[in-house]
Nucleic acid binder design. Structure first.
Lengths: 152, 152
DNA sequence: TACGGATCATTGAAAAAGTCAACGATTGTT
DNA sequence: AACAATCGTTGACTTTTTCAATGATCCGTA
């Protein structure tokens, strides 16, 4: 996204009412975070989204592509592309759905889990950096609030 | 973004470790929020971004386009488009920078402020809906944490 | 003062991402 | 058995993002 400055920007405009808009706050934090996350994940050939898919594939929950699309707020066709890519690189596999033969279950390969562990470590360092303004407590609090906002 | 279901989805996958990834939580909340926000703003011919620009223009802070780009995490050329649109509709005006004649200061018109007030009211209802899972306290807490994460 | 490098807004082109309708295969329902 | 609905997939189309180039202006330095 836009400005790739690593330096801290002057928040002269943060004083505006918009600085309290949840929507904009989310957009901004997400934007700056994505930049860092994608940079950290690039070493493993991943981006935020492919990492998300890989994580779910490694979770043991055996998600279908439809579930991935719903959960990640993506169009089903986008999931096809993401899974295609990961599958070509041997990180995940498509397996036939158990109850429903239309559905495809996405599961990780051993190599996929290996990459995922490394990428996750890098990402956690990254998140630490991004939220360094928050104390450990606040960090947990933020996660809890975001989860609650999403799923009650 | 992806699925436009208004119904609450089953968070079967929220159990995965990814459900604690700040990056993904932000992405998801932002995605679902954007959908609602843009729907609410459509009545006024605005979207999240043009609303953000309009808000800053109405703030009295007299932002330059460069500042808008930095603050909103946008490419400068995207700001040009957004301001072009708002200006053609008579909601903002470009004024010459005071110290720097290269810069253009974006200020709102009376009509712009009128629209902005209406849109803001609609948006607040929208945010209320989006965060209905949170108590009033938690709502404030979330805003505070997001702000702190962004600007310390 | 004049030069040189940097920054501002702007343009336009190229790449990426998102949206959407259609399809075959399969499911569940009547 | 017939029907509508759902899953993954494809391809077309639109929107968004990214990036390099440009003229105008600013700033530091000789």
């Amino acid at each position: 996204m836009g400005p790739q400055s690593t330096e801290v920007e002057t928040p002269r405009l943060a004083a505006a009412k918009i600085g309290s808009d949840v929507g904009l706050l989310l957009a901004k934090l997400h934007a700056t975070g994505s930049l860092l996350n994608n940079k950290a994940l690039a070493d493993y050939g991943l981006r935020e989204r492919s990492f998300s898919v890989l994580t779910l594939a490694c979770s043991g929950l055996e998600p279908t592509q439809r579930e991935l699309a719903d959960f990640l707020s993506l169009d089903p066709s986008q999931v096809v592309s993401l899974v295609d890519d990961l599958e070509h690189r041997g990180l995940v596999k498509r397996a036939q759905g158990k109850q429903d033969r239309r559905a495809k279950i996405i599961v990780s390969t051993a190599e996929g889990r290996r990459i995922h562990n490394k990428a996750r470590a890098a990402l956690e360092v990254c998140e630490q950096t991004q939220l360094e303004g928050l104390s450990e407590d606040e960090n947990l609090q933020l996660r809890a609030l975001l989860k609650k906002a999403l799923w009650g």
